[in-house]
Simulated assay, not measured.
Amino acid sequence: MRVTDPSTSSAGNRRINTVLSQQSRSMGQLRRIEIYNDKFVKVIDQDLFGRQSYHLNLSMLEPWPVRHRRIAWRWLLGMICFALTTLAFGYYLWLHQDPATLNRLLPFIIAFILLTCGFLILFIYHSPNVTEFRSRYGSCPLLRLLYNKPDPESFRHFVAELRTRILAASQAVTFDKKEMLAIELKELDRLADEGVLTRDAYHRARQRIMNMHF
């Protein structure tokens, strides 16, 4: 049950079942999710930090998605602090209206404005509103869909089909639980090596799987 891309094998071309294309302008993110050959999914994710592509076997996913909405308070507080500092400098200049003071403080004001914009971008990027499909045993987020993108109807239809195909792929598996644990652990190793999973997420999932195994 190793996750491979059938389009690269001698078995024939990849047959795409359904495609969902998503875009988030605020995050500078483009995402394309393809369900293909009935039991695989390919994710192509492009954002401000580069492009990433990976494959998953649907049978290793939990069919019940989880909506994840997080507020990145650290970046939000940083943005507020720099914005308030910028306003304080601006108010000071408005009170004094001295060209010499303006020349002295202008570089600091520009720096704080840039820092405010930078923290705003990081706040948006680190505050995702997504629906996650997690691995069956390690409960590790493997597939993230931008919530209600490109529109609520298309999103709900795709999620429903994805759940149906995950259930069908899981029912076709003939391995016992111990073998499935070993297979999922091997797949998580691969995804961690490809940079899909962070090391913290990988180690947490690995620990859950090892606890179940023993």
Rank of each mutant, 00 (worst) to 15 (best):
M1P: 10
A11M: 15
V19D: 04
L20E: 03
S21G: 01
R31T: 04
R32E: 10
R32P: 00
R32V: 12
E34Q: 05
I35W: 05
Y36A: 01
N37Y: 03
K39M: 14
V41Y: 05
D45H: 07
D45P: 03
F49S: 13
S53Y: 00
S53Q: 10
S53A: 14
S53L: 09
Y54A: 06
H55Q: 12
N57D: 14
N57L: 13
S59Y: 11
R69F: 13
A72E: 02
G78D: 08
G78Y: 00
C81Q: 06
F82Y: 06
F82P: 01
A83M: 15
W94R: 08
L95H: 07
D98A: 12
A100Q: 12
T101L: 15
L102Q: 04
R104V: 11
L114K: 01
L114M: 14
T116D: 00
G118C: 14
G118P: 11
I121H: 07
L122R: 12
F123T: 01
S127I: 06
N129R: 08
N129P: 02
F133L: 09
L146S: 06
Y147M: 07
E153D: 13
R156C: 06
H157C: 14
A160L: 12
R165M: 12
R165Y: 01
L167T: 09
A168R: 04
A169T: 02
E179N: 00
A182I: 12
I183Q: 12
E184W: 03
D193I: 14
D193V: 14
G195D: 01
L197S: 00
D200P: 13
M210E: 15
H213R: 13
H213L: 15
